[in-house]
């Protein structure tokens, strides 16, 4: 389960729409399953089909999270023309089995946000619980 405020969910969707037609990406920080901060990051790949989180943005986010006694707990990226489900590339390049992999799909009229764990190549969907705060 991933718990996240409605505000951050809306920020993730807005970031995906703003970067369209390119894939958007960002990082989430918090403790375990609770998202406390969403960091927009640059997509160094500048592509509609792949993303690479700018390493400098990652470093800044990591330091900021640590200063708040939190950790980076996952990555967010958009799929502009496909479902909110990890692609083979996402699975192959997933860096951390403890992370949450949040996908924002812009394929349909209304954006869809889903979250997954990716452990040893296996995709495990988790529920996303939004909080009105």
């Amino acid at each position: 389960m991933l718990t996240i405020s409605q505000i951050y969910l809306e920020e993730m969707i807005a970031h995906a729409i703003k970067e369209y037609p390119l894939e958007a990406c960002g990082l989430i920080a918090g403790k375990s399953d609770q998202v406390e901060v969403f960091y927009k990051t640059r997509n160094d790949a500048a592509s509609a089909r792949i993303y690479t989180v700018n390493p400098g943005d990652y470093l800044k986010a990591d330091r900021d999270a640590e200063s708040k006694d939190m950790s980076i707990i996952g990555v967010v990226h958009s799929h502009t023309h496909s479902e909110a489900f990890p692609s083979p590339t996402d699975v192959a390049q997933a860096p951390d089995p403890s992370w949450h992999y949040v996908l924002v799909s812009l394929k349909h009229k209304d954006p869809i946000v889903r979250s997954f764990a990716i452990v040893e190549g296996n995709i495990i969907e988790e529920s996303v619980v939004s909080l009105n705060c």
């Binding site: 792949i50 993303y51 989180v53 470093l59 990555v75 951390d96």
Partner: peptide, 12 residues
Amino acid sequence: ISILPAVAGGTL
């Protein structure tokens, strides 16, 4: 020194 994983993926 900070070691960070490269974070990447996509629909390809």
